[in-house]
């Protein structure tokens, strides 16, 4: 395709998008007004399920299918990265890296490693009560774990992160979530008292399940990039 044809195709596409976008924006309710029918329904539903963080109630009680779809997107991207970034036959994975870490960076990472993991678990466990939840907690835990790389180097990360476990956790938790959807699990547990740690029925359990799925998925994903960038050498 010549440059001129490409520009013409892009111009036509951009013009259609501009018209549709303008129509969509014109049809939006005014910014900041108080009329939100969906919000009113969602908050009422969340309060019935004793879930003060309405977003968590939406994620697991009202739109569980969306969450399953997002979980599948994550699984797909992890599997894709593993397939695309696997070492070639003429490459070997080194067990030791020759990189030396900057000492001041290592100190900061040592301090922030336990703090970040704590924040990750906090987000995970209190997802039904305060902002946060499985996805955020899982990603914070996964990135926090990689502070090990900044503090102890690649060897420390590799030893304290048995990758096979994370692959199993990612697969099993995603399968468990899909199975829960197939059986049609509803919020069947007692809802308890609102704002208590043990409340909101199945929401905190699913939050922790999703947290493990997302955290393990992010670890497996980053491991492929780390292997490629640090541990591969040509034979």
């Amino acid at each position: 395709m010549s440059r001129r044809t490409r520009t013409a195709v892009f111009g036509a596409g951009a013009a259609v998008l501009a018209v549709l976008f303008a129509l969509a924006v014109a049809g939006l309710p005014p910014f900041g007004n108080g009329d939100h029918p969906y919000r009113d329904l969602a908050i009422a539903a969340a309060l019935r399920q004793a879930t003060p963080n309405v977003v968590s109630s939406l994620t697991f009680d009202l739109r569980g299918l969306d969450t399953l779809g997002e979980e599948m997107i994550l699984l797909g991207s992890v599997v894709g990265a593993v397939a695309l970034l696997r070492p070639r036959r003429d490459e070997t994975v080194r067990n030791r890296s020759r990189t030396e870490n900057n000492q001041s960076v290592a100190l900061v990472a040592y301090v922030f490693l336990p703090l970040t993991l704590l924040i990750g678990f906090d987000l995970l466990v209190h997802g039904h009560l305060t902002p946060g939840g499985g996805f955020q907690g899982g990603v914070v835990l996964a990135t926090g774990l990689h502070l090990l790389y900044l503090s102890g180097g690649y060897d420390a990360l590799r030893r304290l992160r048995p990758l096979a476990w994370y692959e199993w956790v990612e697969g099993l938790t995603t399968a468990a979530f899909a199975a829960a959807g197939l059986i049609g699990v509803r919020n069947f547990l007692p809802h308890g008292t609102i704002q208590q740690l043990f409340s909101a029925g199945t929401v905190p359990i699913l939050n922790i399940l999703i947290g493990f799925a997302v955290g393990a998925g992010a670890v497996v994903l980053l491991a492929q990039f780390l292997t490629q960038a640090i541990a591969l050498e040509d034979d």
């Binding site: 977003v55 996964a142 990135t143």
Partner: peptide, 21 residues
């Protein structure tokens, strides 16, 4: 909730993947 996701993914995870690449 969205702000937390944004910080975790957009500020930590994606830049790390870019750096490694």
């Amino acid at each position: 909730d969205v702000a937390l996701s944004q910080i975790a993914v957009g500020t930590a995870l994606v830049p790390l993947m870019v750096m490694l690449t």
